[in-house]
């Protein structure tokens, strides 16, 4: 089953603009979500908390370094996503165009790769499965 993820990518500026009229954006997003549910295409949607409340674990050096963030080094920040069950990229793009996004932000449209696109005997999948089985997660 093909799935597409609409990834919201905002900048510090677009984020600030959205916060300035947060009630309006929330209402618009709510309407958009309702529209997708009515059309039978929305599988899931999540928005992330303020970037300032997050931390970044940086693997640039030998040991991972934890900093508050993400600031500065990232121009566009991952702010949330919509997961859609649609038949084609064209359709996903059409939905992306309707996201009530703030000027200056971007929506990235990406297909979610299915597990059948990885060979059955793939060692990582086998390990992952063994791990999940041993921890009763499946």
């Amino acid at each position: 089953m093909p799935k597409y993820m609409l990834i919201m990518r905002g900048t510090d500026e677009s984020h600030a603009a959205m916060m300035a009229s947060i009630d309006e954006s929330m209402a618009a997003t709510g309407r958009f979500i309702e529209e997708m549910i009515k059309a039978g295409v929305l599988l899931a949607a999540e928005g992330l908390d303020l970037p300032g409340r997050g931390v970044v674990v940086d693997f640039s050096g030998e040991a991972p370094v934890v900093t508050d963030g993400p600031y500065g080094e990232t121009k566009e920040l991952f702010g949330g996503y919509f997961m859609l069950d649609v038949a084609s990229k064209q359709e996903a793009v059409e939905w992306a165009k309707r996201v009530p996004a703030v000027r200056g932000s971007k929506i990235e449209v990406r297909r979610v790769a299915g597990s059948d696109e990885v060979p059955e005997g793939n060692e990582h999948l086998v390990e992952e499965r063994a791990r999940r089985e041993s921890s009763d997660q499946i």
Partner: peptide, 18 residues
């Protein structure tokens, strides 16, 4: 196959909303 499962799911989800 143009994803008949997907079409059926979509029809069902729309119907459930209506």
């Amino acid at each position: 196959r143009p994803g008949l499962c997907l079409e059926a799911l979509r029809l069902g989800r729309v119907l459930a909303q209506l």
